[in-house]
């Protein structure tokens, strides 16, 4: 009579087959998928370009600033870039559906631009990167952060050095 129990159980549980592509697919929260880049948080250290085993990430200097490109067709989803990024500018989403027709092959790229800016203090042209403030004590306030960000690297160092530290 064992087969009757199995039959009843199968009727109750339904099929084990995933609904995809006829329905939504189960996606784990922390699945390592497509790369996402946030230029606002980027420090411009280019460590992601260096640690990428497949050379999917490229930085290039252009007249507008520094561009970031991640080619999804070369990326192997290893997560090195996210692991080494000091400012969480690069993230792996859990988006896995990257299949595309061959005509779109060269559109599968994550673009980002770190624009140029004029330093408010000395007027030099420099990249508008996120400042390195990990070791700044006490932590910077929001106004200090915007002031620091508007400067070139040399003036940033001067600003941090001359910052008044409350006793």
């Amino acid at each position: 009579m064992n087969f009757l129990t199995i039959f009843a159980r199968n009727l109750k549980q339904g099929p084990q087959t995933e609904a995809f592509p006829l329905g939504p697919a189960f996606t784990p929260e922390r699945l390592r998928g497509r790369i996402e880049f946030n230029a606002d948080h980027c420090e411009g250290c280019r460590i992601c370009e260096r640690v990428c085993p497949a050379n999917a990430i490229r930085f290039a200097k252009t007249p507008d600033g520094m561009t970031f490109d991640c080619w999804h067709n070369t990326c192997v989803f290893c997560g090195n870039c996210e692991f080494y990024c000091p400012t969480d500018a690069i993230h792996q989403t859990n988006d896995w559906d990257l299949s595309h027709v061959n005509a779109d092959k060269f559109d599968m790229v994550e673009h980002g631009l770190i624009p140029n800016q004029k330093c408010v203090e000395c007027g030099a042209t420099a990249l508008n990167t996120a400042p390195v403030i990990k070791n700044a004590k006490p932590p910077l306030s929001a106004e200090e952060y915007t002031e620091l960000r508007a400067r070139c690297p040399k003036c940033r160092a001067k600003y941090l050095k001359n910052r008044k530290v409350p006793a």
């Binding site: 995933e18 592509p21 067709n73 896995w96 990257l98 299949s99 595309h100 027709v101 061959n102 599968m108």
Partner: peptide, 22 residues
């Protein structure tokens, strides 16, 4: 001549199914 690309290292089974559907 390639018609459909399914990137991933390796791609998920669901991604392969999506590619096959295309």
């Amino acid at each position: 001549p390639i018609d459909v690309n399914v990137p991933g290292c390796p791609p998920r089974p669901q991604a392969i199914i999506a590619g096959v559907a295309k």
